[in-house]
Amino acid sequence: MNKIVQKLALLFIVLNTLESAFALDSGTQNLTNEDGATDYFKITCAGNTDHLNFQLVEGTTSISTTGTPAPLPQVLNATLTKLKLTSQTSGIAAGTNKNVTLKGGDGAYTLALDTFGTNLTLKTAQTYTIQYQCLNTVGKATVGTSILGKSGVASISKTLANSKTVKYLINCAKDKTNGNTDSLKITVTNKTAVAKTAVTSAASTIPVSSGNLAAQVIKGHVAMNTIGEVLNVHDDQSGGNGYYSVMVNSPTNKVQSYHFQYSCLNTSNLEEKTSPFQILQNQ
């Protein structure tokens, strides 16, 4: 019995170690030599985040030691067709959703999903849900039927491998109250887990900095600066969840390539929900 408990405890420790050693990578970003140039990003943390772990790295060399950086996301593309009518949306990245609408009236529509353009270094199949709704001219629901499930309700999660295409048929028909269909609206949600990059732990990372590049991270009333050292940004007042603002600039106005790695961590340094960063300003 004691051996079982010991093994379980060891497994727990190993799993914790692995989980806390993952972070997201921004991929290579470039700063121009324009006077005052600053790149501006927003990172969102959710779950039970206590702090943001952040590291700025000059150049394009990854600090990863146990994995390959995955700067490109896994994406889905959706094409909706009815006879000669077509509408499409592309680049539905992991953790995001997009709508596609086609004005085709009543009848049968075909929704094609593919994974072309996705990051082929990531081998895991993508997970997604589809919600469809047949609508009249004023946006009221008409009758919709499909193997995807009920109209207006997200389907069960489905998967699609790299370089594959899948098609679904959706039929729209006249509703007794709301009349004829004007359009079909589809929402595709890419529920694939955002790619993680294994990195060295903060303690074993040796920052290399020329002083030509700096980053600042703000959360609430807390602001921190780095030229390469790992930051753990923690805001007592507003907590760990929410938006973190990240700015990258060059005190010497040098053209610089860089990337950064970030992870939303809880009080035990285990990763919480870390959303892909957004670019607010690219200079």
Binding site: G36, Y40, G211, Q216, S245, M247, N249, P251, Q281
Partner: peptide, 30 residues
Amino acid sequence: PLVSAQVIKGNYVGNFTDPINGDAGWSRDQ
């Protein structure tokens, strides 16, 4: 070290660095 300031308003950020310490010159102005 060189001193820099970042001014943020909405989705805009500008960086200001005084390139030479101890002289009468300032950073760029904007």
